[in-house]
Simulated assay, not measured.
Amino acid sequence: MGNGRWDSSAWAGYTAQNTAGKSQSQIFTSRNMKDEFDPSKIEFRESRDSADNPLSTPIILASDVTGSMGMIAEKLMRDGLNTLATQIYDRKPVTDPHIMIMGVGDAKTDRAPLQVTQFEADIRVAEQARKLWLEGAGGGNGGESYSSAHLFAATKVRADAIEKRGRKGYLFTIGDEPIHDGMTKAEIERVLGITVEADLSAADIIRMVQRDWEVFHIALVNEGYCNWGQSRDQVLTSWRQILPERTIQLEDVNALVETVVSLIQVTEGAMASDVAASWSGSTALTVANALKGVPAKTGQGRGVQRL
């Protein structure tokens, strides 16, 4: 998938009709997971070059949709997707963005612990995102199954950028909780429809996905779970064990998309100070803090992984 190009005028018309003046529940009307987004029923997702996008770049935003984190999906639908696409077009850190949205929950408790749209280059990504089910559950067990997003990307994505050009895609998980330490055999089979010989730890899965993807986690340190007692330290510790240099502390969720774009720019070789200064107002400071310690790009992908 991934034909077409982003059009801000089309976005303006779409949001005027589908999100303006509406509550979160009016924007996201699904009350269960649709088969088209069920990863256990998906053989693979494709990001392919086309006449419209001859040098496609796959970008995945995997958002926690448990508890209050449905706000992330809402922000993307209100203005975030348009900012993401237009800023990548304007700044050109990568070519021809193909965007996928994932909804992440808890494989230990949720009915829909992972939902996956197609890769799209135009307004169709918004049309699919609105169909995602904001289950809002989560297990109250000190973590979410962000590893399911990593494992899907490692095993169920086929992308020309990776296969033809040896270039990595970008994968951002976003949320306020620790990461569960991987997935059991049973969870992997139930959620992803994949049979494996043994449980996989979060570190195991990260090693798999990093072969083909630039992987970041954006921790919303002033939201939700992170605000309970010592929970922020717990969240950051769990993530830094597997992504020591790419666990990003985001102080203001309103700068989420600008931070995503900035991380891509820095990974592609831009100076962090220059990137942060390119944003206006308080966003510049928020982005500058988020970019602290982010390393430069160090390698290219090596092909889609199979279990």
Rank of each mutant, 00 (worst) to 15 (best):
D49T: 06
D49Y: 01
D49S: 09
D49M: 02
D49H: 12
D49Q: 07
S50Y: 01
S50T: 12
A51I: 14
A51F: 10
A51H: 06
A51C: 07
D52R: 02
D52V: 01
D52N: 07
D52I: 03
N53H: 03
N53P: 10
N53A: 08
N53Q: 15
N53S: 12
P54S: 10
P54V: 08
P54K: 05
P54A: 09
P54E: 12
P54T: 09
P54I: 10
P54Q: 08
L55N: 15
L55R: 14
S56D: 10
S56W: 01
S56N: 11
S56M: 07
T57G: 10
T57Y: 02
T57W: 03
T57V: 07
T57S: 12
P58A: 11
P58D: 13
P58L: 02
P58H: 07
P58E: 09
P58I: 06
P58C: 08
I59Y: 04
I59F: 01
I59A: 02
I59K: 01
I59L: 13
I59D: 01
I59P: 01
I60L: 02
L61I: 15
L61H: 08
L61K: 12
L61N: 07
L61E: 04
L61D: 04
A62K: 03
A62F: 02
A62N: 10
S63E: 13
S63R: 13
S63L: 15
S63Q: 13
D64G: 00
V65D: 09
V65G: 04
V65M: 07
V65L: 06
V65Y: 06
T66W: 05
T66F: 11
T66G: 10
T66R: 14
G67K: 08
G67T: 08
G67P: 12
G67L: 09
G67C: 07
S68Y: 08
S68L: 14
S68W: 10
S68C: 07
M69D: 15
M69G: 04
M69N: 15
M69V: 09
M69I: 13
G70V: 03
G70C: 07
G70K: 03
G70F: 04
G70R: 02
G70Q: 06
G70N: 07
M71R: 09
M71E: 09
M71Q: 08
I72R: 03
I72A: 06
I72W: 11
I72G: 02
I72P: 03
I72E: 11
I72S: 05
I72Q: 06
A73Q: 14
A73K: 09
A73M: 13
A73P: 11
E74A: 09
E74P: 00
K75D: 14
K75S: 15
K75Q: 14
K75F: 08
L76T: 03
L76N: 06
L76Y: 13
L76I: 03
L76W: 06
L76Q: 05
L76P: 00
L76C: 02
M77D: 02
M77T: 00
M77V: 00
R78A: 11
R78L: 10
R78Q: 14
R78P: 07
R78K: 11
R78D: 14
R78E: 15
D79A: 10
D79T: 04
D79W: 00
G80E: 09
G80R: 01
G80V: 00
G80T: 05
G80C: 12
G80W: 00
L81K: 04
L81N: 01
N82D: 15
N82H: 14
N82S: 13
N82W: 06
T83Q: 12
T83I: 09
T83C: 00
T83G: 01
T83W: 01
T83Y: 05
